[in-house]
Design a protein around this nucleic acid. Sequence first.
DNA 1: TGTTGACTTAAACCATGGTTTAAGTCGTAT
DNA 2: ATACGACTTAAACCATGGTTTAAGTCAACA
Lengths: 128, 128
Amino acid sequence: MKYCSISEAAAKFNVPESTLRYYEKKGLLPLIERDEAGRRLFSEDQIALLETVIRLKNTHMPINSIKQYLDWILEGENTIALRLDMMRNHKQAVLDEISLMKEALIGIDVKITRYTTVLSKENMEKRN
Amino acid sequence: MKYCSISEAAAKFNVPESTLRYYEKKGLLPLIERDEAGRRLFSEDQIALLETVIRLKNTHMPINSIKQYLDWILEGENTIALRLDMMRNHKQAVLDEISLMKEALIGIDVKITRYTTVLSKENMEKRN
DNA sequence: TGTTGACTTAAACCATGGTTTAAGTCGTAT
DNA sequence: ATACGACTTAAACCATGGTTTAAGTCAACA
């Protein structure tokens, strides 16, 4: 197995190292190993788990909920129904949020169009 | 012109009244009028402006930026180029965020599929 | 006339999600 | 040998975006 350092893990996901330390403290990176000097070692499994964490973070799942999800993973197969339920609910929340944003984008596009028109008219007058 | 109270405005956009008071304090609701008793009066123009604020909020524009935008609106026509630029940049940021979320959703769907499969296999075994 | 209910304010409080600091420990290249 | 860079910790600090509280004003209704 290949292990990587905190700086490599941080680079891989483009987050500060301090964030990874913070996540570990919050229970979002359980079972991280250490070398003899006390440095964190990210195994491939840990990297995969971190990817999941970052995915959930990117979809605005609160840290407490992410922790709950990870706790269920650690607990084993008998939490799969709970995890499935959580992921389904979360998926719907994300879809709702995307809808909200897309609807807001329509209003923003109206402004862009209006401002563009005003500016192009101004320019036409200047040229006359 | 029809005016509405803070409770009506709050109901219209489904936000707490306290949020509207907070927004006014932050400069996001400039020029709100008051009746003789000091109560806020939201004109139709104000409601339209509030709709814009909420639209920007729904697309995660920070309050300081929303304030900058409103300040430009108050300043008049000679800030249109600035507003256009801001809206274009913001639109791109929103599109980027939506992309990120959609990509994360793919990973979430993988989990949902996997958990679903596991559970349905379990159920098949139970029936045997 | 008095008591609700809707409103007002300033200030305190809170949750979330990190970031920064200070002090110290290693491994390694010079 | 030493100095540098990468790492460690706990604790303090910070920004953002509100929410809550306490104390008061006012209009309208019984």
